[in-house]
């Protein structure tokens, strides 16, 4: 019997084939498990999904066409601006939401960065990092909506409650993202600076922040975007912003106006994402390497490489 016909080798070969499909197998298993859990939760009544489409149609028919009165001046108070848009519910609400999100992100970022430097295990002793992690978990365990309800009780209705709610949640959420980014950084720069005797704040400000700047910036921009989106939710409980208007329109069943405001939020979120991309390009490798064109992204690898190199040659010539 030759080696290749040996049952052990055949089994090993089979395992090798399975290994090459391991990601697919894991994904299939996870999807299967998720479907099984869903099935348990809805008691096997998948028929509800088929009825859902009719409800979507009703919702869309009530929401469309969109009512763009939200970008026109409100009837009261009287608009004193030259451009009507500046007196519209969309502008006033969105501006307040952006202001709340901005202030909360800045304060939250400062709080989070101070705490995350103590929570990262590669920078602090274990007892301290566990203690700070517990504080961060406590801040994060309440969603911003609950924080907003609490602060509406403490400081009353309005944007201040929104700012405080979002700042607390931002510290908890951003703090976790930050200490994980710090723990994931290369150990060599830390070791080199620690061996030379630099202090903890010096290492943090001069080594950790420049090295993880890309992550920290992207997380901060993500958090700003998150806070803008959540500004809509906390507005519903009276903490200011565009959510206040959305809540009013929902109560009056004016879905077409709600939909218009949602589209405005979507546009603002996309603009923030583009801004984030531009800001991050200063601190990462983007721009150092040639990026693939849209065309080549959609092609199979072999053809993409051919076109990529071909066009590179043309550019050089």
């Amino acid at each position: 019997m030759s080696d290749s016909e040996n049952p052990v080798d055949i089994f090993r070969g089979f395992l090798q084939v399975l290994k090459s499909f391991q990601i697919l197998i894991i994904l299939t298993a996870l999807t299967g498990l998720a479907l099984l859990v869903t099935n348990g939760m809805i008691d096997g009544d998948w028929g509800r999904l088929s009825g859902g489409w009719a409800n979507v149609k009703i919702f869309l028919s009530e929401s469309l066409p969109l009512d763009w009165q939200v970008i026109e001046a409100r009837s009261y108070p009287v608009c004193e601006q030259e451009i009507e848009f500046f007196c519209s519910t969309a502008y006033i609400g969105m501006l307040e939401t952006i202001k709340i999100a901005f202030v909360a992100t800045v304060f939250g970022f400062i709080g989070a960065i101070l705490l995350s430097s103590l929570a990262a295990r590669n920078l602090s002793p274990t007892w301290l990092s566990i203690l700070v992690r517990i504080i961060l978990s406590a801040l994060r365990s309440l969603p911003s909506l609950i924080w907003a309800i609490l602060f509406v009780i403490v400081v009353g209705l309005g944007p201040l409650a929104g700012v405080l709610a979002m700042t607390f949640y931002t510290i908890g959420y951003l703090g976790k993202l930050q200490y994980e980014a710090i723990e994931g950084m290369e150990s060599a720069p830390l070791e080199a600076s620690r061996a030379t005797g630099l202090s903890h704040p010096e290492i943090f400000t001069n080594v950790v922040i420049p090295q993880t700047g890309n992550h920290l910036l992207s997380q901060m921009m993500f958090m700003f975007e998150y806070n803008v989106r959540h500004g809509t939710v906390i507005g519903i409980v009276g903490a200011g912003g565009i959510g206040y208007f959305i809540n009013n329109y929902l109560k009056l069943f004016m879905y077409s106006r709600v939909f218009s405001l949602l589209i405005i939020i979507f546009v603002v979120v996309v603009i923030i994402d583009l801004l984030s991309m531009a800001i991050r390009s200063f601190v990462n490798d983007q721009g150092d390497v040639r990026r693939p064109s849209w065309f080549t992204v959609l092609l199979p690898a072999k053809n993409a490489v051919e076109i990529h190199h071909g066009s590179a040659g043309e550019e050089e010539s």
Binding site: E186, A188, L190, P210, Q211, G213
Partner: peptide, 8 residues
């Protein structure tokens, strides 16, 4: 690995 800060 030199321990340099790559982005700085």
């Amino acid at each position: 690995k030199l321990g340099l800060i790559r982005h700085a």
